[in-house]
Design a protein around this nucleic acid. Structure first.
Lengths: 137, 137
DNA sequence: GCTCTATTTAGAGTTTTTCTAATCTGTTGA
DNA sequence: TCAACAGATTAGAAAAACTCTAAATAGAGC
């Protein structure tokens, strides 16, 4: 089915220790071939369906989590009861427009600290996440 | 039932436009009489039950949301599928220990910015939230 | 106490996500 | 090329967290 077995996407999946299956390839294309995106599982599933790709919702969830574990995606939690997956895995932050549930990237270098706290004893900082919640005025 | 109708807690609820009912009083006591806390609805419900206070889970949810709307609590979203409610409503941030789902306050003045981004056109900053995710080392 | 309205409640419903167990599909090696 | 096997996918059930509904209950003012 896959004509070019050494395509960058195949590499990307193999490097992550994931077999380049039809479903994973399709989802990866939807996710990574369109610039920086923030999608929910449900959204991605709809997109796949719209693109005539037959994937179950369970596989969408599996794939999103596998990609996240592999460092291909970042999970963003800003709203109760819903996870976003961000294709931008570089150091950056987010605006969150509560009104419509829209996320927008803040480049990493747009935020700089003058002071940061020491982590609690016995722990080390994994990541500092900044969420700027904004409202329409 | 309530012997002292002008107790600070009654005041607090009245000021928020909420009748000081038995359930709200009990939950408020559990929440506010023990210093800064981060609780989930489920946790608070268990605590109430343990304290021999009969409250339904629906009322716990209602109350937490009413308190949040009234500015008596702050909702903190750091984990998919679970909301924490923080009794500290002053300007501050959080450490999140992923391993055990534990939240810890970072005083507001422990964080200072050297640079913050402009909000997107047509929006204004509501709140800047910093979550420092830490791991045990 | 009576009345009115806010509040509480049990239980059903929703939404998002995970699990299960059966089926299918890449991959490897003969 | 193909058999075998482990990994991947799937439908559907289940779980988890929360919300809704409609009926019962309880504060508050008279």
């Amino acid at each position: 089915m896959e004509a070019r077995p050494f395509t960058p996407m195949v590499q990307k999946l193999r490097t992550a220790g994931l077999r380049p299956t039809r479903q994973r390839m399709s989802l990866a294309k939807l996710l990574f071939d369109a610039g920086d995106r923030h999608v929910t599982a449900e959204q991605l599933h709809h997109e796949a369906t719209a693109a005539r790709v037959r994937v179950s919702l369970a596989t969408v969830y599996n794939t999103l989590h596998q990609f996240t574990t592999a460092g291909l995606l970042r999970e963003v939690v800003v709203q109760p009861g819903r996870s976003y997956f961000d294709t931008n895995t570089t150091d950056h932050h987010h605006f969150f427009i509560e009104a419509n549930g829209h996320l927008e990237d803040i480049p990493g270098d747009s935020v700089a600290w003058a002071r940061l706290p020491e982590p609690p004893k016995g722990t080390r900082i994994e990541r500092v996440e900044v969420i700027v919640r904004v409202t329409r005025d």
